[in-house]
């Protein structure tokens, strides 16, 4: 029974919120990978394809409710900050498209962390059952 309880808990509001977040981040990731690869073929920046891949991995991990989602996303976010500084320094207006949206996503990923790892625990519980 315990695993059923876990399942019920995991399909509450938190679950759907995390799934929605995973969906959004996954969609962004796919768009960035698509556009980013196109940009690479035009001899443009590699950032978007790489960041897109990071987002896609984050989304998959989120969907699996693994805490690793947070770590991967943190990596993307820190990498983004570094790249953004390298590109335009402290030009704050130029930083807007580079940093604002990724930081908003970071906040959502952080908000999702309490809901992460449940599945892992559920799995642990399931084994003895």
């Amino acid at each position: 029974m315990s695993n059923i309880r876990v399942a019920q808990r995991s399909h509450g509001v938190g679950h759907w919120a995390v799934m929605l977040l995973a969906l959004v981040i996954g969609a962004l990731g796919v768009v960035l990978i698509g556009g980013g690869v196109w940009l690479i073929t035009l001899e443009g920046s590699w950032y978007y394809a790489i960041a897109g891949a990071g987002l896609l991995i984050t989304a998959i991990l989120l969907a699996r409710r693994q805490m690793a989602a947070l770590y991967v996303y943190l990596l993307v976010w820190i990498g983004t900050l570094g790249w953004a500084y390298w590109e335009v320094g402290f030009d704050w207006w130029a930083q807007v498209p580079r940093v604002v949206a990724p930081t908003v996503l970071l906040i959502f990923v952080l908000l999702a962390t309490p809901a992460l790892g449940n599945r892992y625990r559920a799995t642990v519980h399931e084994v003895p059952a």
């Binding site: 962004l28 768009v31 960035l32 556009g35 980013g36 196109w38 940009l39 035009l42 443009g44 920046s45 978007y48 960041a51 207006w93 130029a94 807007v96 498209p97 580079r98 604002v100 949206a101 990724p102």
Partner: peptide, 14 residues
């Protein structure tokens, strides 16, 4: 290139 998000910025780069 600019935009409000990385996506429109990427479109402008393309």
């Amino acid at each position: 290139m600019w935009g409000f998000t990385p996506i429109d910025q990427m479109v402008c780069r393309i």
